[in-house]
């Protein structure tokens, strides 16, 4: 009897019940021929699809890319606006690109937390036992996160426009700024994938992430011009990649000269992937 015969003979009897039909299992086994091996791009995009499915089933996880950015944008604009720039209107032109960077950088840490949770549940055992391009599970995850970062960016920019942000660079300038930020965030995410594989619990990942993100975002030019800071802090702000990113995004959005800050940001992004990509994969392949 051919495979197809087995299947048609049993298909009708099994559909409605909770029973395992041995003949149908045999049929399924017999028809499990192997397709051609998919490309790394296909498998990465498939994992990206998985990340989007998770958003669909657990929409609460969009909280951190919607409510949180709204909160910090409103808080910092109205808290510091008057004191720092004399008026909220003046300050938001300066602050919004920075708070956009801050918001997205802060939510990158959920990448690590999610991955760590995933690994503890065992589903990564399945992924790691599949004959696919090894980094694709992680790349796909970061691609899915890029969607979350985009949502956060849209929320922050839209809110900014609503409360007085008037970017000189126009829509193209804003898009270019967001694109630069997304590139950096994707690369930055590799730090968290690495931590997620090294640390034991999601809480530990969260804790270490905060320790890294807090100085990087607050010790930068996001909120104020560094010229009033003491020398040692200026030195840190100067070498902090987030400062280059902020200057780049701010310049692109407000049509100001960006100097070499965009280039430096891109180089940082490449360097982060070059260092933490292989480190992550080494742990992953263990």
């Amino acid at each position: 009897m051919s495979v197809d015969d087995t299947r048609t003979a049993t298909a009708g009897t099994t559909a409605a019940t909770d029973e395992v039909a041995t003949a149908a299992v045999l049929g399924a086994l017999a028809s499990g021929a192997r397709p051609d091996r998919p490309s790394g791009l296909t498998t990465s995009l498939t994992f990206g699809w998985r990340a989007l499915l998770k958003i669909k089933h657990v929409p609460e996880q969009l909280f951190d890319v919607t409510v949180f950015p709204v909160m910090i944008t409103l808080l910092f604009t109205y808290l510091f606006g008057g004191a720092i720039a004399g008026s909220v209107d003046d300050y938001i032109q300066f602050l919004l690109p920075g708070i956009l960077v801050q918001g997205v950088i802060m939510i990158t840490m959920y990448t690590g937390v999610t991955l760590n949770t995933d690994i503890q549940k065992g589903v990564f055992d399945r992924f790691r036992s599949l004959p696919i391009w090894r980094p694709s599970a992680l790349v796909g995850m970061l691609l899915g996160d890029a969607v979350r970062f985009t949502i956060a960016s849209v929320v922050i920019v839209a809110l900014g426009l609503l409360i007085g942000f008037r970017p000189e660079g126009g829509p193209l300038g804003v898009l270019a700024g967001v694109a630069l930020l997304l590139l950096f965030a994707f690369s930055f995410g590799w730090i968290w994938t690495f931590l997620a594989l090294v640390l034991r619990t999601p809480n530990a990942v969260m804790g270490v992430s905060m320790m890294v993100i807090t100085p990087l975002t607050f010790g930068s030019n996001i909120f104020v011009d560094p010229s009033t800071m003491p020398g040692w802090l200026q030195a840190f702000v100067e070498v902090n990649p987030v400062s280059d990113l902020v200057t780049g995004v701010r310049g692109l959005m407000n049509a100001q000269p960006v100097g070499d800050h965009v280039l430096v940001t891109v180089l940082w992004a490449l360097a982060l992937v070059a260092v933490f990509g292989p480190l992550t994969m080494r742990r992953y392949a263990r």
């Binding site: 192997r34 998919p38 599949l130």
Partner: peptide, 10 residues
């Protein structure tokens, strides 16, 4: 579907 796609099914 996820696992099938990862094995290369259309």
């Amino acid at each position: 579907v996820l696992v099938s796609r990862l094995y290369g099914f259309s």
